[in-house]
Amino acid sequence: MSKSHLELTNVQMAFDTKDGPFVALENVDLKIRKGEFLSLIGHSGCGKSTVLNIVAGLLQATRGGCVLDGHEVNTPGPERAVVFQNHSLMPWLTVYENVELAVQQVFKKSMSKKERREWILHNLKLVNMDHALDKRLGEISGGMAQRVGIARALAMKPSVLLMDEPFGALDALTRAHLQDSLMKIQQDLNSTVIMITHDVDEAVLLSDRIVMMTNGPAATIGEELHIDLPRPRNRVTLADHPEYVRYRQAVLSFLYEKQRFPGKEENEQEKQTADAEVPVQEDNSPEVVNKSEESPVRRIA
């Protein structure tokens, strides 16, 4: 495709704080194809949520901007649905009503009452939450709440799905299950997804491209990694795929060697940021292998 679906150009984000402006993002450039699954990975506090919020329209970049299908993004809207870092369900509504609130708003005119009901149930079924329709937030687990948040976002039929660590709060089993569902849903709908994650295996398994961010302040995109693994992907067979192992090591090496200590002295950080521009090489340090053994995907596999 010649023209990109979603494009961030030269984005800078400075927050007003009481010690003057704090530049969280600087020179963020990103072009995303329609139907692409993109993961954002980086250390805590580097500015991943900020990027996502700019695409969502919840934050206004202080310089540069975001264009979706030729239109500049400056307000939030349901065509860019968000799965928030912490489910963000209305605690006074039931599981069903939470999804209903979104469906009613987005398909008020285009769907009949019966169609809406079926659509809500369909989406809750996708995340396996159709057994708890009348439960409230206080009565379901964190993982269940996160699933409802995903169902709510999917139910908006967004052209871009923005997910902020959607599986962060889940146990390994549920997480694996939802990752598989998400892969299938995304393939069926060919939706564009930007997902923030801390989990290297998750990023490699799900993504077409992994965008690695440098540490803040003034964080930017350090490296991009195209994942050319065949789809549909299977976590079990993939675990021993030589390419898969190589991709994981590339990400791990970026995170734990080039961007190791977030918030260390300025000098060193600048040097590291500069290093990050250098392309990835094979890296087999024992430390890296150790870390990877702790990953949940590995345990499931």
Partner: peptide, 25 residues
């Protein structure tokens, strides 16, 4: 504020916002 963000993403009208989000909360 997360719920306010949900309301913004859904583009709830002012009245719906007050009735469905602000008041119950």
């Amino acid at each position: 504020p997360d719920l306010l963000n949900v309301s913004k993403v859904l583009r709830l009208s002012f009245w719906t916002h007050v009735r469905k989000v602000v008041l119950p909360s």
